[in-house]
Nucleic acid binder design. Structure first.
Length: 274
DNA sequence: CACGAGACCTGTTCGC
DNA sequence: TGCGAACAGGTCTCGT
């Protein structure tokens, strides 16, 4: 569930609450949550390490410790929270770390897709990721040339973390609508002007998501309100905010995909997807 | 290389 | 009301 803006929001919330605290002990309640190393090594190595800083790369949380990095990926249903004072484990808690100053760090994840790594160098896990969309490395020219050297449908390509790191299902639909591009348009057909528009749209929806503290769907993430400003995601049948045409929902790469059939056009004249 | 299907999981909502 | 199907913000692997 969480995409770049939601993870960024969590990082900003956790930072003041966790930096400087020391890990006293850990309780791994669902072993498969831990991708590496083994539970025994994990528990032993974490003990006594201090949390020095917290950052984000793509949809990963990166807790830099005295001696290593604790990486967390929330996947579909993960959440990280900090609780002061005594804490009673809840049903979906997969990993709990007891910290100094009577603080608990909790990784909760109903669907059990989330993963945690303890590594010496984050590059071990990050090496295949594409550029950060809000960094200076992500430019309109880079996007244009990178789209042209591939021949892939825009939506699956934008979801591919090795192409661009951080977009998920919501922000991809939102960005394509803002850029007026069809989700199935082949990447090598995008013009330079369209690429520039897509570049702007991606940055705009991500910045808006962060400004609104992410989107809160279902029972997760208190606080964010980007869900009240979706242009197409989850708005099947409702009028497009630009032209009034009902928003259409289809499936692309097994992901629910929302778009305006008028603003975003049709890609295949012979077999228009709408 | 590109794409689709299946797997990994639990919980909620939808349709009859 | 009940019950199965469909769906959910992600990613990996395998077959074509």
């Amino acid at each position: 569930m969480p995409e770049l803006p939601e993870v960024e929001t969590i990082v900003r919330t956790l930072r003041p609450a966790l930096v400087g605290k020391t890990i006293l002990s850990t309780d791994l309640r669902w072993p498969r949550t831990l991708a590496a190393p083994s539970p025994a090594v994990f528990k032993k190595r974490l003990k006594g390490q201090q949390i020095e800083s917290i950052s984000r790369r793509a949809k990963f949380l990166d807790l830099q410790l005295s001696n290593s990095h604790l990486l967390i990926h929330l996947r579909m249903s993960g959440d990280v929270l900090v609780v002061l004072g005594g804490y009673q484990p809840a049903k979906h808690d997969r990993l709990i770390a007891q910290l100094s100053e009577d603080t608990s760090l909790i990784f909760s994840d109903p669907r059990k897709f989330g993963r945690v790594w303890l590594v010496d160098d984050p590059a071990e896990i990050f090496h295949d990721l594409g550029p950060e969309p809000l960094s200076e490395a992500f430019t309109a020219d880079w996007l244009y040339s990178s789209l042209r050297i591939r021949r892939r449908q825009l939506k699956p390509l934008l979801l591919d973390q090795t192409f661009l790191a951080g977009l998920g299902n919501i922000y991809t639909d939102e960005a394509l609508h803002l850029a007026k591009l069809h989700p199935l348009l082949l990447s090598d057909l995008v013009t330079k002007k369209q690429a520039k528009g897509l570049w702007q749209a991606i940055r705009k929806v991500l910045e808006e998501g962060i400004r609104r503290n992410g989107a809160s769907i279902d029972w997760i993430y208190r606080g964010g309100d980007f869900q009240n400003h979706f242009r197409v995601y989850g708005r099947t049948g409702e009028p497009c905010s630009v032209c009034g045409t009902p928003i259409v929902r289809t499936t692309v790469g097994q992901r629910g995909t929302h778009f305006c059939p008028k603003c975003q056009g049709c890609v295949k004249p012979k077999n228009p997807v709408q």
